Simulated scan of single mutants.
Amino acid sequence: MTALSFSRVGDGFGVTSGRSWARRIGKIAVIGAVVLVSACGLPRSGPSKKEIFSGSVEKGGSSHIITVDDRVNRAANFSPAYGFGADFQRAGQVGADEVRPGDVLGLSIWENVDDGLLASMGASSTQLQELQVDSQGYIFVPYAGRVLAAGNSPDELRRIITQKLETQTPDPQVMVTRVAGDGATVSVMGKVNAQGVYPIERPTRSLSSMLSRAGGVSIEPEVSVVTVKRGNASGKVWLRDLYSNSRNDIALRPGDIILVEEDQRSFTALGALGGQTKVPLGNESINAIEAVAMVGGLSTTLADPKGVFVLRDEPQSVARAVLGRNDVYGTQRMAYVLDLTKPDGMFMARDFVIRDSDTVYVTEAPFVQWQKTLQSILGTASDVGTTSRTFE
């Protein structure tokens, strides 16, 4: 039995089949779907190229949109480098035998008499162990008094004590040994196999030798960064550069703090790429082409190769060089644009260095949104058609 519905025709009522009524409902629904899709937008990976450009400083936004060329590459390829300052590099090695406040010394004294000043009855020598050098650099030796030990080598200190004792006992023989104390020491911590406080001795007067004394690093050498803090100053270096360049193998000073960490520098990849993730930089210099390749390259079904952006905050000096202006102040938001559809664009991307905290973003191709809109409309129409058939 065919369903009937009434429609007004002229001054009277006509009779329309349910199937015709459903088709009209379907047409209305398709038109509504177009309007709805246009009004609400569709899912996407981020802003379009046009939307990014609309946020430029020239259009009232807060970002400078810069097309990358050779001049921009030269100005923007500034990368903070690790290394030690001149104060660290000029510091001479600590004398391995130099006595310092906090050191612990051992004294052995022989007297050339049967009944000496210091020796016990029937003994020819006296052992004075664990004499700690006080904060002013002195030790106390019986019959020699308060002796300045700091700044002298054990041999020099031996001569000083001998001279003081020979007025009290004939031909004294003195031997001074240096026991590891808390004087000339450094602290080694972080990603090493044996954290601790170590004395600066003859084999461990340089940074590399002290790291070896601490058992070496416990992480991959390629991502290891070594920081040395000395008073209010500090410097850092890649572990690999420490061993490849002798200038980085600085001499250690008492009180130095050595910290080994895993490098935390990274960039973020977003948009129409093979992957969206945070990527560690490591100790290599990475360019824009390599950055895109590290996350699987451009998505062949989504990406607009004319819309590859590198977003970063530039310090004032670099921003002025890039913009060719001296009237910008403070850190500036920069959006560098790379067009990979041109041979020159590929070379520009190859020469553009990625820095810590950069965001590499690739926009979707213009037709992608149209394709999504069409699929959404057709999907809506299909759903309506299915609904219409239920009335038949």
Rank of each mutant, 00 (worst) to 15 (best):
D256P: 07
G282V: 01
A269L: 12
G275M: 11
G275K: 13
I257N: 05
L323K: 07
V295T: 12
P305N: 08
I286F: 05
G307C: 00
P254W: 03
V322M: 02
L270F: 14
A251K: 04
L323M: 11
G324T: 08
S285W: 13
A288D: 10
L259M: 09
V279L: 08
R320T: 13
G275C: 05
L323N: 11
G275R: 13
I257V: 10
N287E: 11
S299G: 14
Q276C: 08
A291D: 00
F267K: 03
V318Q: 15
S299T: 13
A251I: 02
V295E: 08
S266E: 12
T301S: 12
P280Y: 01
R265H: 10
V308R: 00
T277Y: 01
S299C: 13
I250D: 04
E314A: 11
A251M: 06
N283A: 03
L273M: 01
R312F: 08
T300Y: 12
V318M: 15
A293D: 08
I250Q: 03
L298D: 04
D304R: 03
F309H: 07
T277E: 09
Q276M: 12
L311I: 15
P254S: 07
D256Q: 04
V260G: 13
E262C: 05
I286D: 04
K306W: 06
S299P: 13
P315W: 09
L323S: 10
L270P: 14
D263C: 03
D263Y: 01
K306D: 09
A269F: 10
L281E: 05
A251D: 09
E261S: 09
R320N: 13
L298R: 07
R312M: 05
V318D: 15
S266P: 04
K278W: 06
T268C: 03
S299A: 15
F309I: 05
R312P: 09
G275I: 04
M294A: 15
S285P: 12
G255T: 01
L281A: 08
T268N: 06
D263Q: 06
S317K: 13
G255E: 03
R320Y: 14
T300Q: 15
I286G: 07
R312L: 07
A321V: 05
G297N: 02
G282I: 00
M294L: 14
L323V: 11
F267R: 01
R265E: 13
P280G: 03
A288G: 06
E261N: 11
L311F: 15
Q316H: 02
R320E: 15
A272T: 00
A321C: 05
L281H: 01
N287I: 11
T301C: 06
T268S: 10
K278I: 14
I286S: 05
I257R: 11
E290W: 00
G274Q: 11
I289L: 15
A303L: 10
E290R: 06
L273F: 02
V260R: 12
V308P: 03
R312I: 12
P305F: 08
I250N: 02
G296E: 02
A251Y: 07
G324V: 07
